[in-house]
């Protein structure tokens, strides 16, 4: 199951809630304001640890729009085509 997060972790509990429910192996895709979790800061360490069990992706266009160039180690960027590919492989759980 693909988990998408579209809120800044500073604004909403979507990020921390998702991490409580996600099963091992399931990917996370950060989109819209969700990409702020991939920037250095308070949640960087958490995001590093998450990657031991869950691959983390961030939508390139949303990163670029927000001037985020320095990503937490291991976070992979995808474009919209990559987003679609992830959806081909998994059902989707959007943490709105």
């Amino acid at each position: 199951m693909l988990h998408t997060i579209n809120k800044s972790p500073f604004q909403s509990d979507s990020f921390t809630s998702c991490l409580r429910f996600i099963q091992p192996g399931d990917p996370i895709l950060l989109i819209e304001d969700g990409v702020y979790a991939a920037a250095p800061g308070k949640y960087a360490q958490t995001l590093k640890e998450v990657q031991a069990k869950n691959p983390v992706f961030a939508l390139a266009g949303d990163l670029a729009a927000r001037g985020i160039t320095n990503l937490v180690d291991g976070v992979q960027t995808v474009d919209y085509e990559g987003f679609v590919e992830l959806v081909e492989q998994h059902q989707v759980n959007s943490w709105l």
């Binding site: 919209y80 987003f83 679609v84 959806v87």
Partner: peptide, 9 residues
């Protein structure tokens, strides 16, 4: 943008 990319694929 997601819909367009899905159709594109």
């Amino acid at each position: 943008l997601f819909a367009k990319a899905a159709i594109q694929r």
